Simulated assay, not measured.
Amino acid sequence: MSMNRRQMLATSAAALALGGSLRPARAAGVSAGEIVVGTHLDLSGPAAAGMPALRNATELALAQANAQGGIHGRQVRLIVEDNGSQPQLAVRAVQKLIRSDEVFALLNPFGSGTNAATIGAAVEAGTVVFGPWAASAIMHQVAGGSPLLFTTVQNYNTTTERALNWALPEWGSQRVGVIYMEGPFGDLIRAGVTPALAAAGLSVTEEAAYRPGDIDFSSQVARMRAANVDTIIAATITRETVGVMAEIKRLGWDGVKVLTAIPGRSTVVARLGGADTEGLYGVGGWRLHGEDTTDTDAQAFIAAYREAYDAVPDENAANAYSYTNWFLNSLRAAGEDLTTDSFVEGARATAHNDFTTYSEQSFVENHAMPEMVSVDRIENGVWVPQTEPF
């Protein structure tokens, strides 16, 4: 899916602002005793509620590795900056991380728009970008196919399409509406909706866009109801998913099915939304574990997280922990003479399988494969699988 002209111009301007006179630094942030990595998260914007989980779990995985002697004798140090889900703030954050802090890599940076504004210049500067929480296909497009970008988040278009290929005939959907965020994230969801509808002999009945940061979804839901849709595809993240469902429940609109894409299938959504999110469907891309899990590795993670942060981790924490450990294993595979070249070779040779994954994964063209999904539903405040992973 191509970015539209306005998005491309904004991204190019941001990249120029960030890139400036930077030159590739093949082993920036690497010294005899330390590897410096950075990240930028939404600590003050619309997704801020989910950010402590990402930050804490990333720090936990690094702390555990450091306690065991680090990576080839080097301690890994993390620097965190706020992007507020705003591209211009992300540009400033990444400028600092690359120019002042001289990080070796950006690890688990958050947001499709914020990463689209910064990834191109980051890889041009010789900085590894590992596991951006963003629309993976567009990130590779912005990075120009750079070998320094490794994506772990499932492609939103392919996973949405696969989930809808199951859901549309299962539900007997006839009139489908789409509520989507303006920008790369929403574009990719819609790129998955279109072929799935075509395969079912359908077309979009109604669409309604919203902007990042919007909190009122009354007009978008009103358009869906006026069009008498029976299914709504929600290209929404945390607060937006709750907002859409709250408006549907406020109207007493029964019978419509709502399917949120991968970012909205979050335990944070179920917790924040409460009764309003009951019955919401979501596209799942990883295993969920509650405190009652019988998986021993998940139990160990939950116990370590609770001890460190006096809180129970959600799946965002689990995924950040998982991606960070994949990054650490890639560093180990890179060997003692760490450069971006040796890291690329090590990451491409490192498979990954843990308590979060549906199957063993490896990087194919620098993207985590295979991509598998499930369709889940919130029942009594908990996401309950409606399908096996497929």
Score class of each variant (00 low, 15 high):
137 A>M: 00
136 S>R: 08
158 T>C: 01
180 Y>E: 09
146 S>I: 07
154 Q>M: 06
146 S>F: 07
94 V>E: 03
187 D>P: 06
185 F>G: 10
194 T>F: 01
172 G>V: 13
207 E>V: 02
181 M>T: 12
219 S>D: 15
144 G>N: 12
159 T>S: 15
170 E>S: 15
142 V>N: 00
116 A>I: 09
188 L>Q: 15
154 Q>S: 14
153 V>C: 11
110 F>K: 00
180 Y>V: 08
192 G>H: 00
154 Q>R: 04
178 V>H: 02
192 G>D: 03
162 R>W: 08
200 A>Q: 06
97 L>C: 12
156 Y>E: 10
120 G>W: 04
116 A>M: 12
168 L>N: 05
154 Q>A: 15
88 Q>M: 14
132 P>E: 06
128 V>E: 05
194 T>H: 02
205 T>Y: 00
128 V>D: 01
158 T>H: 08
76 V>S: 04
131 G>F: 08
88 Q>W: 11
170 E>A: 15
163 A>C: 14
170 E>I: 00
176 V>D: 01
218 S>P: 05
144 G>Y: 10
120 G>Q: 07
177 G>W: 00
224 M>R: 05
113 G>K: 01
192 G>L: 04
119 I>H: 04
107 L>V: 15
103 V>N: 08
218 S>W: 07
119 I>T: 13
85 S>V: 04
185 F>V: 14
180 Y>D: 09
174 Q>C: 03
115 N>I: 08
147 P>N: 10
193 V>Q: 01
127 T>Q: 06
214 D>M: 11
183 G>W: 00
150 F>A: 09
111 G>R: 03
130 F>P: 03
206 E>C: 08
94 V>H: 02
98 I>R: 03
200 A>T: 03
216 D>E: 15
164 L>S: 03
169 P>C: 09
152 T>H: 11
202 L>I: 05
211 R>V: 14
191 A>K: 03
94 V>Q: 06
185 F>K: 11
188 L>Y: 11
205 T>S: 07
93 A>T: 12
210 Y>Q: 12
187 D>F: 06
128 V>F: 02
223 R>W: 02
210 Y>M: 13
160 T>V: 11
150 F>S: 07
129 V>R: 06
157 N>C: 00
138 I>R: 01
161 E>S: 12
121 A>Q: 04
148 L>S: 06
129 V>A: 10
131 G>L: 07
128 V>Y: 03
172 G>D: 12
170 E>M: 13
199 A>F: 00
194 T>G: 01
152 T>G: 09
84 G>P: 02
208 A>Y: 02
157 N>G: 12
110 F>Y: 14
211 R>K: 15
137 A>T: 14
96 K>D: 14
149 L>F: 09
139 M>W: 07
94 V>T: 12
121 A>C: 11
134 A>E: 06
133 W>D: 14
187 D>H: 10
83 N>G: 08
196 A>H: 01
125 A>P: 04
119 I>N: 04
208 A>V: 09
134 A>Y: 04
217 F>N: 06
93 A>H: 10
82 D>F: 04
169 P>T: 11
173 S>T: 13
85 S>H: 10
150 F>I: 09
167 A>C: 05
87 P>R: 02
172 G>L: 13
208 A>H: 05
84 G>S: 14
117 A>Y: 10
